[in-house]
Design a binder for these strands. Structure first.
Lengths: 224, 224
DNA sequence: ACCTGAACACCGTTCAAGT
DNA sequence: ACCTGAACACCGTTCAAGT
């Protein structure tokens, strides 16, 4: 009887759990992901989830990995390594835009699976760029810092609950910045004035390009 | 009667609370900082703290700011902007080594006070470097990413409870890395082989220098 | 083997009541 | 104005019991 496993449109599985978690995170934010909410959505007991996943951290890590794996698989692979690196970076940027809750994990756990996926992809391209072995680690880390730095910014934005509260928080922050002692914080105040008008994505790409320029100049310095 | 305010070696204050919090965080890690533990250490009621500080996030932010402010104040200011930038970066690095729990906040809240302090300091030096206005923001952000990237790494390390558990976790992680499919993760595996032997601080400084090189090459490209 | 859901051991935060 | 500490409204996780 094949109906046995189909009792509830298929039994619980790690994949089903991860997909449900992503649904909650995307719709209601990271604060809404609790084992109670998750088990309600899956029409199961709250303890059942632990049969398939170790704990909450593993759950969020699996959700993040699920999305990053999809991004990496869907990437076009351009001829030039520089373009490939930009493609990876923008892929992560756009994924963060759609799933800002990933920022918290990506920027706080440097050795988890999703980060290793990005690292592998970036590292290979840096290698293809002809960067000498002794600079390979530094160059790749600098690019990862640029990518994960934007993850941190999305994480910060994701922590603000809802749109209304979000804009309230933003204006409160802008007010706080304006009140910074001009004698003590001239640079930050000058920078803050430029923030409202700028395009995040373009800004991010410019940061990646700056690091690429730096890597290039190292390569020129020690040819072969 | 002057004895009135001295009832309990001085009344509660934000500063006393922050210092007690730092004590707990340094000794027992971020997991140990609870309002119950904190109020016990201060010999007060758990609700009393809320009279002086808004909530837990504000408490950790104040603790981080307290330490970073001290670091920035104690900095020697070298002649060359590059040296000044390196001094700021290493100051933050060493503070993170002594107080790894700061990593979580520094790497996750880009607009909090402690981060603004670092940003102000770095930004001024980048300006002194003669970087043109249109590249100023990018150059400073790239340096901040390098500094806050190391904060994230310290945060990850700080989350591991005690030394015994820590080394167990590290070997478990090394084992996990070794088991990564060699066909899928050649770069990560190659990099992992180099990790055990390397000096964190030196590595960090090399990353800062790479970004400085990149900034230099931008400056050369568009003089004045 | 897989699932249930009550129970456990915590949290941060609030607030009526005190001084 | 400042402090007390019980109470509230949650959490993640465990585990005896079921199928």
């Amino acid at each position: 009887m094949a109906t046995r496993t189909a009792r509830r449109t298929g039994a619980l599985s790690k994949e089903r759990i991860v997909e449900a978690a992503i649904g909650i995170l995307d719709t209601d934010g990271e604060g809404a992901l609790t084992f109670r909410a998750l088990s309600a959505r899956l029409a199961t007991g709250s303890g059942a989830i632990y049969w398939h996943i170790a704990d909450k951290q593993a759950l969020v890590a699996a959700a993040t990995d699920h999305i990053i794996a999809g991004v990496m698989a869907g990437l076009a692979t351009p001829r030039a390594p520089q373009d490939a690196i930009r493609a990876v970076a923008l892929g992560v940027f756009d994924a963060l835009d759609a799933h800002p809750w990933m920022g918290a994990l990506l920027s706080s756990d440097p050795w988890q699976r999703a980060v290793l996926r990005i690292l592998e992809n970036v590292g290979r391209q840096v290698q293809a760029l002809g960067v000498p072995d002794d600079a390979l680690f530094n160059a790749t880390t600098a690019l990862m810092n640029a990518i994960l730095g934007i993850a941190a910014q999305h994480a910060a934005a994701a922590r603000l609950p809802r749109d209304t509260e979000r804009s309230a928080h933003l204006t409160a922050m802008a007010g706080e910045w304006a009140e910074l002692d001009p004698a003590e914080y001239p640079f930050v105040r000058q920078l803050a004035a430029h923030v409202p008008g700028h395009d995040d994505r373009e800004q991010f790409l410019a940061g990646i390009n700056l690091v690429l320029t730096g890597i290039e100049s190292i390569r020129e310095r020690s040819p072969r």
